[in-house]
Write a protein that binds this DNA or RNA. Structure first.
Length: 109
DNA sequence: CTCTTGACTGGTT
DNA sequence: GAACCAGCCAAGA
């Protein structure tokens, strides 16, 4: 992983399976920047200018709250995409968050 | 160059 | 369970 920190984030986010979600902090921790969870959020902000499709809707905060919904095309886009993938979303809160949570340490080894 | 802001988190009150 | 605080680092004014 000699790429940019942001690129690592994007690569990891792209690996998240459909219908699953993870948290900014979990991504940061997996990349060795456990205390830099804010950078993950900033990376998502940059994902707009990325050429590839970044499923940023599968990344939420540790509460399972769709804190970044407002940064999508419309505030409903994030929840809509998640529901389309089978994730139950109650308002801005993901139901059964523990069940749909995707842990890179477990899933990737 | 300094100051503010933020798609966050963990601990404490 | 809600509210507050401190640590973290990058971008923009």
């Amino acid at each position: 992983m000699d790429k940019d920190f942001y690129q690592n984030i994007f690569d990891l986010v792209k690996v998240i399976p459909s219908g699953r979600v993870t948290s900014y902090g979990q991504i940061a921790k997996y990349l060795g920047a456990a205390r830099s969870s804010r950078m993950v959020g900033w990376a998502m902000n940059l994902s707009h200018s990325q050429k590839e499709d970044i499923p940023a809707h599968r990344v939420v905060n540790r509460n399972g709250l769709l804190t970044g919904k407002m940064h999508f095309e419309t505030p409903e886009t994030m929840a809509a995409l998640l529901r389309a993938e089978g994730v139950v979303v109650n308002g801005d809160q993901i139901e059964n968050f523990k069940l749909v949570f995707w842990d890179p340490f477990i899933e990737l080894g």
